[in-house]
Design a protein around this nucleic acid. Structure first.
Lengths: 203, 203
DNA sequence: GTCTATAGCCAGATAGAC
DNA sequence: GTCTATCTGGCTATAGAC
């Protein structure tokens, strides 16, 4: 039993290494340009061994997305535990986290049009459950923040939620980073400001 | 001479048809999932004939982007001709146009990571010239709008410009459209508001 | 479960007749 | 310049030895 558990642990560590490589390559090149050969080379195992762990390239991508959502859920729960914090501040912290992940080169990017990939994700229970868990929490905070007047009450909560999610794959941070004119902290602050306050002048 | 000109016109019309198909397919499926066979079938000619007009798939995509930028440049010049309009209103009109193009399913989507595609675009003189022409105009208006206080003067103009460009490939409009809860006009208004005013409450 | 080697396929690009 | 037919390379996925 101890030996089996040890074996399982080894297996788990290896799969973690795989998923981490996939996550990095997805962030770097995107799904279509990432090849399974690259993943295998990056992990340091043969391609055939990869397919013993994950049955398809789509499954690899799905595993990376699940990992991302697990990290997101952890951040969300951490914010939920700050009993003194206002909902607006919690939302702000989550947006900030997504921008930091992007700037760290750890945000996997998937083509939203690929239907086989969408099918794989929609069929993945863990992915769906995590996505709903995170969305529910954010949705609560959005409604509460509209109630206390910190978020624009004329915007349907759905629109606010999508707008926040869209920041996670916004090209602006990487453009600004490529420009080399701002450091990561400045980029986060600037994008946060345009997201929260827009580009028009505040009185 | 007249005959030659006529031939050239026929050629031009055919190439226009090709580029229009490419534009539509790029909007629908994206660059990676669009196949040259599909383009040929959509235009109604053989694939080999396509390659007599354009030397590669990347060149097809570049042609579609040039066409898009030509349309954009026309919109920009039209706004420039409104001598009575404030710079803020001109910018607003351009943003609105990009959202309408997206909702009409006419916004080609290219993967920003594909390096061969980037190389093709950067080597395309017409593309670069149009991009700079449009960017210069928008840049002028941004600075002017910051001068008259309608755009937040604490944001570097570069950040405002990128933020506007990013609206052209924002996933929020198509998400909202897929949701079926809002019509196109409402979506444009909602996204315009989040772009200009952010999600936080305005006093 | 790991490897080497290869099957099978698909899509970009081309040859050559007309 | 248009077509049919074909080449070519690369990528996902698998067979089979160890």
């Amino acid at each position: 039993m101890a030996k089996l558990s040890f074996r399982e642990q080894v297996l788990r560590v290896r799969e973690d290494a795989i998923v981490q490589s996939v996550n990095r390559l997805l962030a770097e090149k995107g799904f279509d340009l990432m090849t399974v050969d690259e993943v295998a080379a990056d992990v340091g195992i043969a391609k055939a061994s990869l397919y013993k762990h994950f049955p398809s390239k789509e499954a690899l991508a799905a595993a990376a997305m699940v990992r991302l959502l697990q990290r997101a859920a952890a951040v969300v729960e951490q914010q939920a535990a700050r009993s003194e914090a206002a909902p607006f501040d919690r939302l702000q912290a989550v947006i900030r986290w997504t921008l930091e992940v992007q700037l760290a080169g750890e945000m996997p990017s998937l083509p939203s049009q690929n239907s086989t990939l969408r099918a794989e994700l929609m069929g993945n229970r863990e992915y769906i459950d995590l996505l709903m868990q995170v969305s529910d929490r954010l949705g609560e905070w959005i409604v509460a923040a509209q109630g206390d007047g910190s978020i624009d009450g004329r915007l349907p909560p759905e629109v606010v939620l999508y707008t926040i999610y869209a920041r996670a794959c916004d090209p602006v941070p990487s453009f600004l980073k490529a420009g080399g004119q701002f450091d990561d902290g400045e980029i986060v602050d600037l994008v946060m400001r345009t997201c929260l306050n827009g580009i028009a002048r505040r009185d």
